[in-house]
Design a protein around this nucleic acid. Structure first.
Lengths: 242, 242
DNA sequence: CAAGATTAAACTGTCGACAATCGGCGCTTA
DNA sequence: TAAGCGCCGATTGTCGACAGTTTAATCTTG
């Protein structure tokens, strides 16, 4: 397959005026791989064969390698020199680390966000809670989880620290992996919506200690629940790759 | 230049028993680049020409690219698609983010570390404080800063969370960059040693609130000092790369 | 018949090549 | 003389190739 006039894409060639920032093969591969990992299509411990991915996407190995390095930094893959990249296996220990760090980062973010709350922000958060309520009826677990994260992410965005947001995003992909392993929601969708409403209330109140305590508790609850469910599926608690 | 029996290295060919994990060209390049950025050899905003680096190191562009992507994730470089990688320019805003996150992460780590304190840990920390006292007389600023970080890093290590440590390490390189910009120490070396002694005392005491407050204060003090010094050097407060 | 040696296939790490693109320089033109 | 246009060198993004290593499969051999 020979290139002709534009860099090889994973999407159709330039149509209309859609040629904005679409020139990032590595980024696209990273997204594809991330999705594959999160969805479980690439199971924990599985080997990520560069040539295989490359062939499948109709590109060469170079961009795949760079994307893999990216995901390694984000913690989704691990690299064993001269043996390749593998999908990270999460042990109970890892899950604890993830949630512990999430509490640390997110309850801090919440305090910052409270100080940056504007009417616009507030409205956006309220709207997202509405979405949570709506999706609660849809029985679409994946969607529900996604909208849930979106709410939490909005708060970190409002906090206004790019670095805080990056840490959160990296944690998110790992958490999505965990959720993927569990395979089911661990709480009633309607309760989730309610809980988040309470979170927003506390946020608007603006009392640092209370915000921290509330978010801490909220995330810790999820942590406990996830922990409980993971222990039921010991297949996910194996050691590291082969 | 043709390869013969072992992958191209940046160090001399296998001598003695130095063939441990030395098979990682990308890692080596990353270290070289990191050092170049931290030392200011590659100034903020400078373009990182792949071919140039590659030629200089006697290797091809592929490993250089992968290393650059790594440093991008760590926040030392920024990538402008189709234009290349540039050394990140830090604005005052960035410095604030860095220290804010550091407080968040490190004071949490300290609380965890207190719970994991063993006699061995304790001794190691005490020893590091001795080192701080010793280097205080050497007038070697770079060394002093390095030993300072080492102390803080040990605490995060003791905390026992790989993820916490990664965040800390990423922040560290950015902080080293800041220190590099400032170019001088912002506190009396002997005072530094003393201060850290106090930190360890509090840590051994084991009272969460006090630990958090003390570390928070300690880092915030450094923050303020750095902020003051940076404002004196407006050359470091420019916008983003060209 | 199992444990170890042997060989073949599959893969990684790295390289050099090439087209597309970017940035700057000088030339044209008002 | 200053804004605009097009060309040229420098650099990126991507590819295909190849040596060397790891893995798996097969073949001994005690």
């Amino acid at each position: 397959m020979k290139r002709v006039g534009f860099p090889m894409r994973l999407m159709s060639p330039p149509v209309g005026l859609a040629a904005l920032a679409d020139t990032d093969l590595v980024g696209q591969v990273a997204r594809v791989l991330t999705q594959a990992v999160i969805s479980g299509q690439l199971a924990p411990g599985a080997k990520v064969v560069e040539a295989g991915i490359a062939r499948e996407l109709g590109i060469s190995r170079a961009p795949v390698r760079e994307a893999a390095r990216l995901l390694e930094q984000q913690g989704l893959l691990v690299s064993h020199p001269r043996r390749g990249f593998f999908v990270r296996k999460l042990e109970v220990r890892d899950i604890d680390e993830i949630y512990d760090l999430r509490i640390c980062v997110e309850s801090h973010a919440a305090q910052l966000a409270a100080k940056n709350l504007t009417p616009a922000n507030r409205a956006a958060l309220r709207k997202q809670i509405d979405v949570l309520h709506e999706t609660a009826d849809l029985e679409d677990h994946a969607r529900q989880v996604e909208e849930d994260y979106k709410f939490h992410r909005m708060i970190v965005e409002i906090a206004g620290s790019k670095r805080l947001l990056k840490v959160f995003d990296d944690l998110s992909s790992e958490m999505r992996m965990v959720i993927g392993l569990i395979g089911r929601l661990y709480d009633d969708p309607h309760r989730i919506a309610q809980t988040h409403e309470a979170l927003l209330d506390v946020l608007e109140q603006g009392h640092d200690d209370i915000i921290a305590a509330r978010f801490d508790y909220h995330i810790a609850a999820a942590w406990r629940e996830v922990g409980r469910l993971v222990r039921e599926i010991p297949s996910s608690t194996n050691g590291v790759a082969p």
